[in-house]
Design a protein around this nucleic acid. Sequence first.
DNA 1: GGCAAATTTTGCATATCGCGCAAAAATAGC
DNA 2: GCTATTTTTGCGCGATATGCAAAATTTGCC
Lengths: 202, 202
Amino acid sequence: MSTLRARRRKRTADTIRKAAVELALSDGLDNITTEMIAERAGISLRSFFNYFAFKEEALLPPPVALSDEKVEQFVNGSGPLLDDLADLLVAHFRQTEINRTQLRALLELSRTHPKLMFVKDQTFCRYEDQMGVVIARRLSVGPEDPRPRLMAATVAAAIRVGVSRWVAEGQGQIEDEVLSTVTALRDLFQERTPGTPRLRRL
Amino acid sequence: MSTLRARRRKRTADTIRKAAVELALSDGLDNITTEMIAERAGISLRSFFNYFAFKEEALLPPPVALSDEKVEQFVNGSGPLLDDLADLLVAHFRQTEINRTQLRALLELSRTHPKLMFVKDQTFCRYEDQMGVVIARRLSVGPEDPRPRLMAATVAAAIRVGVSRWVAEGQGQIEDEVLSTVTALRDLFQERTPGTPRLRRL
DNA sequence: GGCAAATTTTGCATATCGCGCAAAAATAGC
DNA sequence: GCTATTTTTGCGCGATATGCAAAATTTGCC
């Protein structure tokens, strides 16, 4: 249970991640080997696989869990669900430190690299699962109710779109882009005049 | 552009797919090799990679494009957008032939196998892209409008949930499950009484 | 039918991945 | 400082996946 060992381990993992990202961005993911990453990180090839199951896992930052405090705030919130959820997400993204240029390059790479896409999806899926849980708590419904899951899925989809938009052309902070995309969900399919679709502007 | 060669090619691809799925379901994905698949399909190992970029690609059926006729019907439709879109999807899923047990096993496998998940996601992403295009046409808006993309993303998310639910416990046809999940999107975040969330049943 | 061109299949060599195992090294508790 | 536990490492190995060129097959054409 040594916290020292845990910290050391985390430090090494970060070193490996840094080495992997630098190499991937400079030389291209196809032109680097796990051996090169290990060498740059100052560990043996075999040790690399003690930290990551496969090469691409070292390329994306580890998923960060939602803050417990903010989760409780959401579960007990009294505003419209979507707004309260947006608050939770904004607080979360605000505390993540993301390099936009780097993230753009990595997301672009993930489009053609199966294992990198896997890692990316795992990250989003974890968000989705967490959201499903907290939404179910907020609504006080059990696992048989399909709404939390569907809500979490659509919100996760909106987050994806928001992140993608921010990475591509966003000017401000990532949390602003996510916020506007997520809250746009409310009226997405509410057409003013059935027959001649005139949707509200995003 | 010999159509005979194309048909032969498709036939061989299907043979390989069949061999791969049978082996994966009977022996487990981890216990089979590309060589075993190739042998069962009656081709050389090297030829396998002429048909599929990697082993797992042979496990899922090739994505089917939306029917042109139904797409035009949707683009020119006059009902509520979500209903017309649901019609398009129902027509599409109706014509796909899916073995529920097999699909369940493969989706379960994809949760832990990066490359299989990649193939699955590619399939869903293609749906999402196609939907984005047809929704933009329907709304007569250009690529700068963010709504088609967000709509497509949320509908794709709903399809995922619908398919997942059908695979897990669905009794009827897959298109019915998809239909009810997608149409549930309309009122998902429309709360009757802000403050005390009382959402409509799915 | 038979020949030449184009395409597909195949064998072989090769680089890398990723895991199992056990020895060596580092670290923790006492 | 000694021993137990954990981590790192070296080595071997099977499997994946690619490039290249020869062999086989198919196609168009006469």
